[in-house]
Each structure stands twice: as C-alpha cells, then as structure tokens.
C-alpha cells in the first residue's frame, strides 16, 4: 500500500492554477526525485503534501492521514511527515540541541531525556554530534542544513520531503548534504526530493518525476527518465535549458 497517495489535486493562488490535477503514489521506502522548470509547481506540490498550503480540490493521503480541502488533521499528519527547506530555517534563538528537541518535547510529549537522546542520535546520523551545543549562526550553511535534517528526523517521520535543500549552498558544501540524503535513502527512508542535482537524482532516486506546467508530465525509473526521455519537453529540459 502506498505511503503517499495524491489524487487529482488542484491548487490555485488566486487566479493562477499551479497544480492542475496531480496524481501520484509513492511506496514505502521509495526515493522519488521531482524535477522540472522553475515555476512548474514542484515546491507547491511538496508544501501541499504536509498541509503548508491548502488545496482547492482532490485528495492527499500521507502515512495514513487524509488531507482534503477542509484542512483537518494537519498536526497528526505533520508528526509523520518531515520537510526540509532550501533556507534551513533553524530557530536562531535556540542552540542546536534545543532546535532538535523542541518538537519532540512539545508536539510529541517526550521527556527531556528522551528528546535529548533523539537529538544526539540524529546529529550523529548527519555527522554533527560535536555541534550539539552550538548556536545556529555559528554553523556553516551545510552544517545548518544538516541540523535541519536532524531536526526533522528527530520526529521519526514516515516520509521525508526535501525542497532543493542544496540550492542555497556553495558547491563545496553541497556534497556533505547530499551524502546525508544518500545515507538516508539507503537506510530505507521514504523520500520525495525536489532537486536540480540531476546526477544525484539519477543515481539515488528509484523513480523520477518530471513536472511541467502544474502536471506530472513524465515519470518512470530514474535510469529511464534520464537515459531515454520520451517527451520533447523533458528532452529539452535535460539538454540544458535548465531554467
């Protein structure tokens, strides 16, 4: 049974229809890359998946939680669905440990000790165990993004969403974040990632979805999507007219 299931989702900002009837399904443990031109609706789709944006029609089911136009049951869903943004969005007034512990404590009701254990475990997972007492401002962009990933992982989500998590980083810091994503993927996390890192998507994602003008234009096993694109739009997109 799929962990993520999207049925005919429509999303508008005012008169602008950004998602024009998107349907898809993601199986447990699957890693799905979402690629496409700027403005094609990739971020919007991810944001709808954890209810940051309401949808006008259609149905979204993630990890057993159903989202429809009414927007009920949001919090239950968000406990099971993590999202990491391009701009890390750490809480600047809290140390790394407290950044990670906050949600497990107040949203999940864990004790301080349990939350601390999760912070230590997830920081180790992203290779930053020694930064547990640091302030976010004193970390590099790559380190902040890894803390943001750890913060999401500490909720022990069933699905992780990543929206261009390396786009704000200098090239030399991109690698350390991609390495974390790759480990996560190998450990069986269900992941949807919007990315411009084509080589990474091809190597790590089981499946790749090409979005075009608010629709899933083409999808398939990553090797096929990148190796033998069927539609002219995807071919053109891959052949360099990136933006």
């Amino acid at each position: 049974m799929p962990v993520v299931r999207v049925d005919d989702v429509h999303k508008r900002y005012g008169a602008l229809e950004v998602l024009k009837g998107v349907s898809m399904a993601v199986e447990r443990g699957e890693v799905v890359a979402i690629i496409g031109r700027s403005g094609s609706g990739k971020s919007t789709l991810l944001r709808c998946l954890n209810g940051l944006e309401p949808i006008q029609s259609g149905r979204i089911e993630v990890a057993g939680h159903v989202l429809d136009a009414s927007g009920r049951g949001l919090r239950a869903l968000r406990k099971d669905v993590g999202i990491v943004f391009q701009s890390y969005n750490l809480f600047p007034h809290l140390r790394v440990a407290e950044n990670i512990m906050l949600a497990p404590r107040v949203a999940l009701g864990l004790s301080k000790r349990e939350a601390r254990a999760r912070a230590e475990a997830t920081l180790a997972q992203v290779g930053l165990a020694e930064k547990i007492e640091a302030w976010p401002d004193n970390l590099s962009g790559g380190q902040q993004q890894r803390v943001a990933i750890a913060r999401s992982l500490a909720m022990q989500p069933k699905v992780m969403l990543f929206d261009e998590v390396t786009s704000a980083l200098d090239p030399e810091l991109t690698g350390e974040v991609l390495a974390v994503l790759e480990t996560l993927a190998r450990d069986g996390m269900t992941m949807l990632l919007v990315t411009h890192e084509m080589a990474f998507a091809r190597r790590v994602a089981d499946r790749t979805i090409f979005m075009h003008q608010g629709l899933l234009h083409e999808e398939g096993p990553s090797e096929e999507v990148f190796g033998a694109p069927r539609t002219p739009e995807l071919r053109q997109f891959l052949s360099g007219g990136l933006k």
């Binding site: 940051l52 999202i83 969005n89 809480f91 949203a107 943001a148």
Partner: peptide, 13 residues
C-alpha cells in the same frame, strides 16, 4: 515568515 512554516511543519500548535 519561514519561522512560522518551519515550526508548523514540526507539528507545533
């Protein structure tokens, strides 16, 4: 604003 989003995404009320 992203501080609102990040904390909402972490299931805070």
């Amino acid at each position: 604003h992203p501080q609102w989003e990040a904390s909402a995404a972490l299931a805070l009320t």
